[in-house]
Design a protein around this nucleic acid. Structure first.
Lengths: 351, 351
DNA sequence: TTTCATTTACGAAACGTTTTGTTCTTTTCC
DNA sequence: GGAAAAGAACAAAACGTTTCGTAAATGAAA
């Protein structure tokens, strides 16, 4: 039986021939089983000399596992995604998993296609930052019993493992900070088509209501989280006859757009307008005024998401979904100023 | 012979049983071979009913192909990467390939590790936006005969397939534009640790020299392409006693940082300082003043890179590397102003 | 018709692992 | 010293495809 001569990498059979042991023994060694010390040495030497590396494909075939995890991000060009992908990718790789990344491009149709693609590639699990607010598109994965972990966002109609922050509370806290600096005319720029944005607007309303302040529709500017929207909406607010004294910006990109808009206006931050936003990047602290931000523990969240995922993959129990909300921290900055109390505004409720 | 009962997807054997044909025939059909029309109908019906999908893993094992392409980006958080990853990922998926993305995080050590990881995962090819300026770290891939395609950057010491732009010429053209607007005190903020930056600085020098202008070291601000560096260096330039009238910014992130710095200074763009940069994003046209930019045909470049890669994968010829440089276009903006000629400056060479 | 070429289908052997049930060896304990 | 228990190693059968060599069926040419 002549073996085709291909100059590809060594196989277990080569190790077998070199050591005189059986495939089973070598496999056992490779998977951490017990092997006689002398054989162990033998095998290690052979592996070393042959530069043997286990063929993940062959292994995948028999174990029916690919050691690949799909990651679907709503928009790969968004700052938040970049950070997430970095941490998740790193963590997965540490655990020997490869990440297959798909960009949904904020498009629900593409998102559904991506999902099917990942299922057809038989990934072991899928981590999703969804575009959709409903879970329908995940059906093929559920049929194939591929575990799903959500990040940053959940669905309205179905529950999955999820790691994120309590966006509503986080936004609430941000507005509280503005209130504590004596702001009363507070606006918000956030998304009405993304889960996080919707929640954050709710948090804004919670805080305003609790402080006994009227919620003015013109102060709630809605549009997809993006630099462009942040820029446009901030322009609108600045041009408005009753210009707010402070604005909560729905995410990092929105904040960036907002700052650009203020910078090129006749107004300045924080003298004329205070800004507070979400998430952080190196620039946040470097610019002047530095940005006041609500920050999410990205790295921790990503590690947790991977941990959840690997747990699901290992023991495919049908345990109930777990949702983990991490606490946020406040990164103080100079973009919020304290308004001198003029005695005219009185709180109708303690803040 | 009892087959283990697993509720997983249908296999070719199921199709075989349903049709009464042999595995070989079905395989032939699946791979576009000729099959009797009646059998074709039979097979298609069976596939339809069973929801059969070929198991890419099994196929990979025998063909020694994974239909996966690794993508190594220098920094996933950089705008340029985001766009690239989007286009490349999309294109690969269209061709039935999955993209495994690794972030090198601007770290040569991580880059080398990522490469080894991809090799061990037996990807069919690797598309690299390198951090390193030398090709050493690619050795494991070469040994495994995995084709490499470079994007955006090349190496000093070795040649590979590569798609990008002629950065030197592009920067030259950008500076020419500034010269044509009668600027003479022109600075540059660009990277000295990244290939593109280095080339762009050369282009800057070319243009300055050609215009007969002295190259002042204090006008050449070097630092990794990033928002932070753009911000810091612009601050330095603005604070300098002989403040330039125009600045070329090395990439998109640098431009963003530069604009933030100008915005918060006492100076304004373009009245006091003109800016021209690289690449584009939606924001570029939306902000005011709109940004004057040199833009690369990203989508075309990505498509080409994938095309090159798939060619290499199909016929693993040892043809010589091909380098493709795309032309850039200029996107005019308001961030560059024309200086009234005061008669004091005279060109010592035609521009 | 017969012969030869062409097309289509088939069985069996790969691909490189893991896993299962069995055999062989060593250790432990009375 | 012998039996039982424990530990290692092994051969062979999977996993789901492709591919190779051959056989059968069809069509064309003589």
């Amino acid at each position: 039986m002549k073996r085709k001569v291909r100059f590809v990498s060594a196989t277990m059979r080569d190790v077998k021939n070199k050591t005189g042991l059986s495939l089973a023994t070598i496999s056992k060694y490779l998977n951490g089983g017990n092997v006689l010390p002398e054989n162990k040495i033998l095998i290690e030497k052979a592996i070393e000399e042959l530069h043997y590396e286990v063929n993940e494909i062959a292994r995948g075939l028999v174990k029916n596992k690919t050691r690949m995890v799909g990651i679907m991000v709503h928009d790969i060009e968004c700052y938040f995604s970049g950070k997430l992908l970095h941490y998740i990718g790193e963590e997965l790789r540490k655990c020997g998993y490869a990440a297959i990344i798909c960009d949904s491009y904020n498009d629900e149709k593409i998102e559904a296609e991506n999902l099917k693609f990942l299922v057809s590639r038989r990934v072991d699990g899928i981590i999703v930052i969804p575009v959709c607010m409903r879970a329908g598109f995940l059906k093929p994965a559920k049929q194939a019993k591929i575990p799903i972990v959500l990040m940053d966002r959940s669905f309205q109609d179905e529950e999955f493992d999820c790691v994120g922050i309590d966006n509503r509370v986080a936004a609430y806290r941000a507005v509280r900070i503005l209130l504590e600096h004596n702001h009363r005319d507070i606006a918000v720029i956030s998304s009405d088509v993304e889960y996080t944005g919707v929640e954050r607007i709710k948090g804004y309303e919670d805080a305003m209501r609790q402080a006994g302040l009227e919620i003015q529709e013109e102060y709630i500017k809605k549009g997809r989280h993006s630099t462009e929207v942040g820029y446009e909406k901030m322009k609108e607010l600045l041009a408005s006859p009753n210009r707010p004294t402070a604005v909560l910006l729905g995410n990092y990109d929105t904040m960036l757009g907002g700052v650009l808009a203020v910078n090129e206006s006749e107004f300045s931050c924080p003298e004329d307008i205070s800004l507070i936003g979400f998430d952080t990047l190196m620039i946040t602290g470097v610019v002047s005024p530095s940005w006041y931000m609500v920050v999410q523990p990205m790295e921790k969240m990503c590690k947790k998401a991977v941990e959840l995922m690997l747990n699901r993959i290992e023991r495919k129990g049908d345990e109930a979904p777990v949702k983990m909300y991490f606490g946020t921290t406040i990164q103080k900055g100079e973009s919020v100023r304290t308004i001198e109390s003029d005695g005219l505004h009185t709180m109708t409720a303690p803040i």
